[in-house]
Design a protein around this nucleic acid. Structure first.
Lengths: 219, 219
DNA sequence: AAACGCATTAATGCGTGCATTAGGCTTTGG
DNA sequence: CCAAAGCCTAATGCACGCATTAATGCGTTT
């Protein structure tokens, strides 16, 4: 394993800060502030890491002003979920074709864990395991490009889910705990049966339902 | 328009170098070398730009060693074109729904330009206009995420096309000049008729043909 | 009162030089 | 003659400080 250098660890630390909701959309992530927050000696690695986050599209940037979490908007959320639907359709369909038996077993294990976690009602833990499910399917599709794009769009969609959760304290998340695992299960079964199009379609529906449930709860 | 700073122009200049095939896959892109090549005073903007290219997945990186163009491989090229097919299917389909009449007129203009350029036989110029066509469709799909991913995968696929062209001096590119514009034309017509699925399917076929013509010529 | 412009300031942008280290090369021992 | 160990070199990694500039607020003008 490559020893991690400051640039990388800073990059990861900033992602962690974002995912842990230290910043609101629109907030500027000041280099000096982050440097202090992470106890670093100079802005250099922070500057570098922010540049990468902008390149990846996690942050937007204004010249000479700074980086910020792109504003959330009704049009944007539609774009996000539309892109996600289609990417994850491909993932699930490809997974049904390329998954090994062992990987399918691992997938089942993830769903088991998900059911258990769902019962505890811990949103952060549930979110983590949910991410694991989606990423794992992307992974077994064996296509690094789809995987990369899926990860990106997943994170972006999570920004919406988290934000609205914290903003409105909607209990939609509670119902999510019960509905999602069942849908995940069906997707897994389709993958197991090697039914590519069915797996993809189920995944697409699953994501659309997530989106609809969530946009209903805020309108 | 934001005034472009050194970091950005350096980033673009490096992409240009890559696309113009200054480096072979596997070559290390040395910061000092690029600094000299671009007549810059310090490595700083180069270092920053390379970091972004790595973040975007255009380059791979070894710690303390440097950045290099990821090796081209038969599996990878399949992943690239598979991802591209599906992304551009969505683009074309969405474009058929969201394009304004004016944008369709612009698209026609691009194809006109393409036909003209095709006759000159200048591969670099043709490649540029071809990129313009694909990017414009991504743009009028109005989804910034699909647009971003499409751009990325397009560039990666171009790496293959360019590399094999220079490597084998295949004349496939010559036939491409004649075949592609006709296919582009059909896609544009489908978009004009607002036939979303048809436009998408045509686009998918177009890309698959590009891929097949090209993998045939090297096997 | 509104609008314009100037000065201030707080942030990024970037050059410089030193620290670090991976990998090649040389040397030495078997 | 070959292999292993250690030095050497060339490249990235990083800190520091100055340059640049976009935004903000205040004072002046219409």
């Amino acid at each position: 394993m490559n020893k991690e250098n400051l640039e990388e660890s800073t990059y990861n630390a900033i992602i962690k800060l974002i995912l842990e909701n230290h910043f609101k959309p629109g907030d500027f992530l000041l280099e000096t502030e982050i440097t202090a927050l992470l106890n670093l000696k100079s802005r250099t690695p922070v500057h570098h890491a922010l540049g990468q986050l902008v390149a990846k599209g996690f942050l937007a940037k204004k010249n000479k002003k700074g980086c910020f979490i792109p504003a959330l908007s009704p049009e944007d959320v539609e774009h996000v979920f539309f892109a996600r639907e289609n990417l994850e359709y491909q993932n699930a369909a490809s997974a049904a074709i390329h998954a090994s038996d062992e990987e399918i077993a691992q997938l089942q294990a993830i769903i088991q864990e998900e059911v258990t976690t769902g019962k505890t009602g811990d949103i952060v833990a549930y979110s983590a395991i949910n991410e694991k499910f989606h990423q794992f399917i992307a992974q077994i599709s064996k296509n690094q490009y789809l995987q990369q794009y899926s990860q990106h769009i997943f994170w972006r969609s999570n920004a919406y889910i988290f934000f609205y959760y914290y903003q409105f304290k909607v209990s939609r998340v509670d119902t999510e705990f019960k509905v999602s695992p069942a849908q995940h299960m069906k997707i897994m079964e389709a993958i197991k049966r090697r039914a590519a199009d069915e797996a993809g379609t189920l995944m697409k529906q699953h994501i659309r339902r997530t989106f609809e449930g969530f946009s209903k709860s805020i309108s």
